[in-house]
């Protein structure tokens, strides 16, 4: 396989995904809403967060945010799945 072929293949893989993003607490206030549908080419959840952080000037760096899919915390480096629901969890403070 030539470098040219590899580049083409990579370009074909990069597709636009549609995901549902949920915001809470400080993120909800900064974004101005609790959830939205987002179209993105981000390949990981971390890349999606960085994209949103830049777009909406989120104060919190990714290192201080956790992320969950459905009812489970997942690794920020997890691949971003099309049609998934991403729950962004700013620092918690129960109790």
């Amino acid at each position: 396989m030539t470098t040219h072929d590899q580049r083409n293949q990579k370009n074909q893989i990069k597709t636009i995904k549609t995901v549902q993003v949920r915001y809470f607490a400080v993120l909800k206030e900064e974004r101005g809403l609790g959830e939205e549908s987002v179209q993105t080419e981000a390949e990981t959840i971390l890349a999606l967060y960085e994209e949103l952080k830049t777009k909406y000037n989120f104060v919190l760096p990714a290192s201080r945010v956790r992320v969950a899919v459905k009812d489970e915390f997942v690794d920020f480096d997890s691949p971003l799945e099309d049609q998934s629901e991403i729950i962004l969890v700013p620092p918690v403070a129960g109790g």
Partner: peptide, 8 residues
């Protein structure tokens, strides 16, 4: 609870 539950 304080460290893990998604409560703000």
């Amino acid at each position: 609870t304080k460290h893990r539950l998604p409560i703000w």
